[in-house]
């Protein structure tokens, strides 16, 4: 099987004499047998740690959950610095979790949570922070401070948690460079290996923000400039 790997700005071809293996196993074969300088990230091999995300023919996948085909082009994720070959620096992307204030803010007393309550944020908490959505998001081309899909999904996880003492700090934190900067293009949804839909989560957060008295600044700007009210 022939595989093409983007390393720095060049494309390298490798012949991997294996079949039926995962892309992660194929990359391991190249590193151990052909070129030990190849860099990529890996961890659990079973799709829960989110380390090995790369792009195959332009689409984000977990290397441990993808079986490569002849002539596939493997590239690093977008929207973050490449450390080397397929390994990227996640520091800046992960910092958006903190900017979004996506964390538990416990009430003083314990609370009974029903099965129905638990369903309210079960899917959002399936996120493994693999960054597939972050890489697929086109907003970063125009706004590198965009809080982005996974951090906004994480914000909704806590906003929708009935155990949360106060949701205002999180809602407040995602007004600027947050929910209104998303173009609702849906690129983040099909690439998620966990079936999470950040675009939908962002729409829910917009509605909640509206109910809490926050305004979409883009709409106000539209009235000002476009319609000249």
């Amino acid at each position: 099987m022939k595989m093409k790997l983007q390393r720095s700005d060049k494309i390298f071809e490798y012949e991997v004499p294996l079949s039926g293996v995962t892309l992660l196993e194929a990359l391991g074969y190249i590193k151990e047998n052909i070129d030990s300088t190849l860099a990529f990230s890996s961890g659990c091999r079973s799709s829960v740690c989110g380390s090995c995300t790369v792009r195959v023919n332009g689409k984000e996948v977990l290397a441990c959950a993808y079986k490569p085909k002849n002539d596939d082009l493997i590239q690093p994720l977008r929207n973050m610095p490449v450390l080397r070959d397929l390994a990227v620096d996640m520091d800046r992307a992960l910092a958006f979790n903190k900017i979004a204030k996506a964390w538990g803010l416990p009430k003083e007393e314990a609370l009974h949570v029903s099965g129905e309550d638990a369903k309210r944020n079960e899917l959002q908490s399936d996120c493994i922070l693999c960054s597939a959505c972050f890489s697929a998001c086109p907003v970063y081309a125009v706004n590198e401070d965009f809080i982005g899909p996974f951090a906004l999904t994480r914000a909704l996880r806590y906003v929708n948690d009935i155990r949360q003492k106060d949701i205002k700090p999180t809602i407040e934190a995602i007004q600027t460079n947050g929910i209104y900067d998303c173009t609702l293009c849906n690129e983040c949804v099909p690439v998620c290996p966990q079936g999470v839909a950040p675009k939908q989560d962002i729409e829910i957060l917009r509605n909640k923000s509206g109910i809490m008295g926050y305004f979409n600044p883009n709409i106000l700007a539209g009235f000002d400039d476009g319609l000249n009210f």
Binding site: V113, A118, N121, S125, D161, R163
Partner: peptide, 11 residues
């Protein structure tokens, strides 16, 4: 863990 938001399954 429950108070800080671990999404345990519930019955």
């Amino acid at each position: 863990l429950d108070r800080i938001g671990v999404p345990f399954s519930r019955d």
